[in-house]
Amino acid sequence: MKKSGLAVLVLVLAIVAVLGIGFVSVSNSIIRSEEEVNVSWAEVQNQYQRRYDLIPNLVETVKGYAAHEEEVFTAIADARAKLGGAQTVPETAEAVNAVEGALSRLLLVVENYPELKADASFRDLTYELSGTENRIAVARQRYNTSVQSYNVKIRTFPNSIVAGMRGAVPKDMFEAQTGASVAPEVKF
């Protein structure tokens, strides 16, 4: 009687221990995965900030040659302000699309000013800007990859139980809106 009671107790304890270890390890792996998503999103924002900082320099240089293209400059300023206020992933995506649209227009304007295209500092800025656009593309792609693996992780079976208990929800991928999905082409 006493012996079997002890055996049951040991069994229950063993099951609890196994479940507990399983829970902790799954929970930790979800946390790691989530942290990866956070890091890759930070990188995306980091690169947006880089572009954001480049814009005023670019605008100033273009203004030196094409001061009367007021419309484009205000569009850029507005879009830039919008990006500064964005918080969530979808908000940022929308603001970024606006910035990209305005930048594309600015670069179209530049086409009409051959002296501007020959300007040394403008050329440097062009390289910096196209390097930044490429960094953004890479960072976005890596962000989406990390979100994908995170979402798969929290939705597949044994993990999904733990994810449900921890209140983990699938994260948004970065999807550029149609029409603005192509980053401004920086080529001269």
Partner: peptide
Amino acid sequence: LPDAFLGRVID
């Protein structure tokens, strides 16, 4: 090695 520097090396 900023992008602008490498761009100039290319050009």
